[in-house]
Design a protein around this nucleic acid. Structure first.
Lengths: 344, 344
DNA sequence: CTGAAAGCGCTTACAG
DNA sequence: CTGAAAGCGCTTACAG
């Protein structure tokens, strides 16, 4: 092990006390400009960095945010939902911009993660991300809150949910995309995605979907809503069972792009043309979607903004401010899978 | 701020000394089984977690690995190369498995990152990831080595490069994919991607490409190698200039999938059919590629294995072992863009 | 503006 | 097997 310089070494070289070195390096206004510059010059030359562990221990904070990523337990172990990957990228950048380090961890819903980070002083706060089964981890959220851990959660807002949620407006998104398809002349709709309490995001998209149909005076047959989790494969299976049921439809709203990719594959395998016979819409605008054939019409969540708001909100929480839950607006990305040619 | 229990509180409640609490919680064999269990039970009940800052300060290590992600400075700010995103996922999992926390940071090549992490004791070692301009940051690598920082780098091996590199066998990959296209009957090749010292990965792929042509007795006209960085747009531009040059070709080897996506778009825009008129191959097997039209034949890097080896190697380095550079094998993923139907 | 000193919460060599 | 004590490297209230 190499031995590193300490603030005492710098003090010795600069001919000042160690306290002064510490102040100078933290840019304290108390210290004389010349002294400060001298100290900083010596520190730079020695490649001295303040020991974070000592500094954090003393200051009782960590300058670090923890990002806990839950995965859908049923999804392939080696694959991460591209949407979360994109969120991860934006959160990483946002925390760097805010001067925080980011600790990233993949969690299993069963793990005893709820205290791990902040209690051990590894992080000042936690960002929770993932389409987990909401019912399963509500208790843990409650416990986090009870322990006064600082955390924000990405996801749907729920009236009596513990903590602060930042999410996009899934009802609006479901509504907009369905309305777009109605405007394209579609009349008989099916919805693929689990619409129940366990996945509030999908549930909200389904609510928006239903609202749009109702507003247009179209009838929705509940049989035409098929459960699916957010994987290509699940979308494929669900679409196959929908086809097997034999009821006609000319529009397929999928709760996620991954589901839509699977749905399109199933339709293709059954020689059903998209969008001529069936229009397909997704949700998320993951990178794949623009390259699909036909390019997928979908709903875009602004991951860049989402990451920033998540990080900013958490920092506000850490600083003792109250934070409101926030519903992010959502954008329609019109491509070819619903029979409309993109403007751009 | 809530106040947290300390080891002294536990000691008091358990009726033992604080030293014994510390030992018990670290599962020291020195402490009596009953004492240990009692202490651990009390700690669990109080939700007590060892303060990492204090522990790390005392033990002079952090239990944390830092992942520095460099981005191609020219790429869109909000987009991360999907290949690296996938590596990020696998590194995250591998470090969790090894019991290390992972600090993730996006770096600009110009930043003064080379000392930041280990010098400040925030991390025990660093993983460097990114297709940066290699020439630009070689000096920093040298400095890292000089300071005896523990680090591993993802990328091409270079004889006189500083530090340990883990990378996939890009020469082999370039060779295999080109040979596959030759076997499909292609004779006139072009290569898109910057093949020079600044990007050793692309350079190696180009070397493999050239070897395959040479082995097959095919001539390669150097004019048919066009510079491009790893973006869809750059691939598009490069292909357009290739087409503008007017020389015929029936096979296009791209240094990355992103480039290939752009190349396919350019060919499509020029009404050139893939693979009938021109076969196109990529490199990376990013998720998009399987959904492209036609599905892209490419070279797969095993990101799961890569993440594990990167993490394991770094930990060995931290533990004082020597680590060899490692060249990972690479797999051909045959789909439709080179005129071959996938077996699967 | 500067210095001496206390203390953040642990781990571990030392003594028993 | 257990305890008292030193010390990791800082930050900051206190005194000047």
């Amino acid at each position: 092990m190499r031995d590193k310089a300490t603030s005492f070494d710098i003090a010795h070289l600069a001919g000042v006390s160690q306290s002064t070195v510490s102040r100078a390096l933290r840019n304290s206004p108390l210290v004389n400009k010349e002294t400060r510059e001298k100290v900083q010059a010596i520190a730079a030359e020695l490649n001295y960095k303040v020991d974070k562990n000592a500094s954090n221990l003393r200051r009782q904070q960590s300058g670090t945010l923890a990002l806990l990523l839950f995965e859908d337990p049923t999804s392939d172990d080696s694959l991460i939902n591209p949407f979360f990957l994109s969120m991860l990228g934006s959160i990483t950048k946002a925390s760097a911009k805010a001067g925080y380090d980011l600790l990233v961890s993949f969690q299993n819903l069963n793990d005893d993660w709820h205290a791990e980070y902040e209690d051990s002083n590894k992080a000042d706060g936690i960002i929770l991300l993932g389409y987990g089964d909401y019912v399963d981890y509500r208790d843990k959220l409650a416990k986090l809150e009870e322990q006064q851990t600082h955390f924000v959660r990405w996801g749907a807002h729920d009236v009596d949910h513990p903590g602060v949620s930042i999410g996009s407006n899934n009802i609006q998104g479901g509504f907009d995309i369905t309305q777009h398809m109605i405007n394209q002349g579609r009349t008989t709709f099916a919805f693929i995605g689990g619409a129940d309490k366990h996945c509030p995001e999908f549930m909200d998209r389904y609510i928006g979907f239903s609202q749009a149909l109702q507003e247009a005076g179209l009838v929705h047959n509940p049989v035409m809503q098929i459960e699916a989790i957010s994987t290509e494969d699940s979308g494929y299976q669900a679409t196959c069972s929908l086809l097997a049921a034999g009821l006609p439809f000319d529009a397929l709203v999928c709760a996620s792009d991954l589901i839509a990719m699977g749905a399109m594959r199933a339709l293709r395998d059954n020689n059903i043309s998209i969008p001529q016979q069936v229009a397909v819409a997704g949700y998320d605008n993951i990178p794949i979607s623009s390259f699909a054939n036909p390019a997928l019409t979908t709903v875009q969540q602004n991951t860049k903004l989402a990451g920033e708001i998540l990080v900013e909100s958490l920092i506000q929480l850490i600083n003792g401010s109250r934070v409101e839950q926030y519903l992010m607006p959502v954008d329609l990305v019109i491509r070819h899978s619903c029979g409309h040619v993109a403007q751009s």
